[in-house]
Amino acid sequence: MATVATGLTVWAVHSPSAGPSESKSSSVARDTKPVTKSVDALLQSALKRQTHQDFPGAAEDYRRILDLDPKNKQAWYGLGVIDQAYGRTAEARKDYDKALETDPRFTSALYSEAFMLRSSDPDRAIELLGRAAAIQPKAATVQLQLGQLLADRHRDDEAEQAFRRAVAANGRLLSQVPEEFRDAVSP
């Protein structure tokens, strides 16, 4: 679980958040630059700590980021991954929802929350994966997971479409498509 927590967070954080453009000469741009640098440094520290499985230290860094930038989606997401790793699903869900309030198109939070809810709330998981699939239609893993949840809910036509999109994006996934759908979705 610790490896998953680290991998999900590192996957979600592609690069440090960008600060205001250097070309802006307003005092607002100058005043936010130190905060942006602090947030970036704390984010790198949190990722390093999480990679070394220092989850309490990483969580502390994420909370410090949120003190500086309460709408930092990466910090909310990081806390969600840590809470999920510790089995604190209610807290993780709140964290992911906070990340999604900041950026409703944050696919990492959509996918992680859906993955967490696939057993306990499959309809919500389908809704979240559907949103992620709409944002990134060629994300084969998202399509595959969506298809599996739809098939479990006996929504076969929708499942077939999701499996078809998954296989079109990555043909190697055909072997992971349930047998009853393979002929319909094979290239």
Rank of each mutant, 00 (worst) to 15 (best):
L174D: 06
L117R: 02
E101H: 02
N170G: 08
T102I: 04
L66F: 02
L173K: 14
A139K: 04
R172M: 14
S38D: 07
R155G: 03
W76S: 12
E101N: 04
R118Q: 12
A85I: 09
H52G: 15
A133I: 13
K33V: 01
R182N: 12
P20L: 15
V142L: 03
F106K: 04
S25H: 06
P16S: 13
R164I: 10
E113A: 14
G19A: 15
K71F: 13
R131I: 10
Q148K: 03
V35Q: 01
V39A: 15
T102W: 15
Q143K: 05
D97Y: 05
F55H: 09
W11D: 01
R64G: 00
L79G: 09
G19F: 09
A159M: 11
I126G: 00
P70I: 15
E179P: 04
L173V: 06
E127M: 15
A59N: 14
V167N: 00
G147H: 00
P187D: 15
S25A: 03
R49M: 06
Q74R: 09
I135F: 06
R165H: 11
E179I: 09
V185A: 10
E180M: 07
P56N: 03
Y96L: 11
G171T: 09
S38F: 10
D123W: 09
L8H: 10
K48R: 05
L43G: 15
W11K: 03
P178M: 08
K24A: 00
W76A: 13
V10M: 10
P56A: 01
L146W: 05
R63V: 06
D183A: 05
S45C: 03
T141K: 03
S186V: 07
E179T: 07
A58S: 01
L129Q: 02
A139D: 05
V4R: 13
Y62L: 04
E60S: 10
L144M: 12
I82Y: 01
L47H: 02
E113T: 12
S23T: 05
G171Q: 08
S175F: 06
R118W: 01
G7M: 15
P122S: 00
Y86K: 08
V4F: 14
G130T: 11
D83Q: 03
Q53I: 10
E101P: 12
V13N: 12
R105S: 10
H14S: 13
Q161R: 14
R155M: 12
